[in-house]
Design a binder for these strands. Structure first.
Lengths: 232, 232
DNA sequence: ACCTGAACACCGTTCAAGT
DNA sequence: ACCTGAACACCGTTCAAGT
């Protein structure tokens, strides 16, 4: 009769699941997916590998839980105050995801993976519900709600994933300088393409150089929202 | 003076780079990214690991080359005949990518990865050029070409990636039966969600069950195209 | 020039054993 | 109940050596 749970555990539980997830996220942020090794975890947490497996099952589950933690936090942004338009709500969610992936590069791959194989988890459901609740107010008729929400999710996740920066090679010292160099090299390469075969790339090199990822993302959302308005 | 290259090589070159890439693609298609191991390669090709490294550098490069091969082939679909509309052209490219990922599940992750870190390679450039050439005809003004093409690429790759099926667990015997079961379980889980908290998910369970991925994809493209028309 | 295959450093995961 | 850490099977990659 467990009316009162055994109060003193055998030993102080020194390792919590939460603690494990937090250091996992830390390792991922610092060195990308490759840096999340069981041994790196045991070093940081000063335990044996068994201790980790006692709490988390396996590496893949750890990755999924880390994803869930970050995304849930990102979605927890308060639904704006009172009179926000559906467009504003959608933009808020989209930008929250954009920023989450900017802060955690490894998320891009993992997020897609989770949506593919765990349509029932809090990540997939959370994103769909949050965005989906707005499409009605947007003027989309009921029978098209799923189509509309899917289009939004596809665009947002696609854009956000492709804006993630290079993973693994976080070895480079100054991230900004890296980005500059990266772009210089890319521009040069685009310029070098045969204009006969690649007229479009030639026409837009300048635009690529000057564009701002976040602004372009918002433009894309505006395009999709506009299109959804005409969905009958 | 190498006016005429040494005609007889020391030994018949028995292993070609192309051959290596082909078996890599085969392994990937059969068992997902996890199945592409150097040892599996040496078994299939009856060589030592060194032979493979002589031709390809490393595993990551092999994965990239495989991606390049498949995507290039997919894009090589002839640009429809004469009078195709820009919308038709875009749809043709989109569906080619859709089908490529359907046939090669591992592509989803790898394609995004390549676009992120190799903006200069044939994959990124090929996709952008092919789609981009149409946005002018669509009525998008020059200064917005990059925005328009990006929106298209983001949507298409997002949608196409999220339609990829579960990787790794190709262990299940009958893929169709699997899909059925998978959907039944998902539907049940969605039904079980609290309708107070998840009104949208409840409203669309039926739509999810009945929808067709490919059709929905085309709807999404129509939405984006429609939105692009108003991009000034 | 092209290939062999042993060797190396490093993985994720398990499990008997401890407290 | 919670943790330890040696052991296992398996990785990707290198490299001296062969032809």
């Amino acid at each position: 009769m467990p009316t009162r749970a055994r109060r003193t555990q055998r030993r102080n539980q020194v390792l919590s699941r939460e603690q494990i997830i937090d250091t996992a996220i830390d390792l991922l942020d610092t060195g990308g997916e490759g840096a999340l090794t069981v041994r790196a975890m045991t070093d940081r947490l000063a335990t044996g590998s068994g201790a980790i497996y006692y709490h988390v099952g396996n590496r893949d589950e750890l990755l999924d839980t880390a994803t869930e933690t970050v995304i849930t936090a990102a979605l927890a942004t308060k639904p704006a105050r009172a009179a926000a338009s559906p467009e504003d709500e959608i933009r808020a969610v989209a930008l929250a995801l954009f920023d989450a992936i900017a802060a955690h590069q490894w998320l891009a791959t993992r997020l897609t993976l989770q949506i593919i194989r765990n349509p029932v988890g809090p990540v997939t459901v959370g994103i769909f519900e949050r965005l989906g609740q707005q499409v009605g107010a947007l003027g989309v008729p009921q029978p098209r709600w799923f189509d509309a929400a899917s289009t939004l999710v596809h665009y947002i996740l696609g854009a956000v994933s492709q804006n993630a920066r290079v993973e693994g090679d976080t070895s480079g010292i100054d991230p900004d300088a890296d980005r500059e160099e990266f772009f210089d090299a890319a521009s040069a390469a685009w310029q070098a393409l045969d204009p006969e075969d690649y007229p479009f790339m030639h026409a837009i090199v300048g635009q690529i150089r000057e564009h701002d990822d976040r602004e372009q993302f918002l433009t894309g959302i505006a395009v999709v929202l506009d299109g959804l308005t005409n969905l009958r």
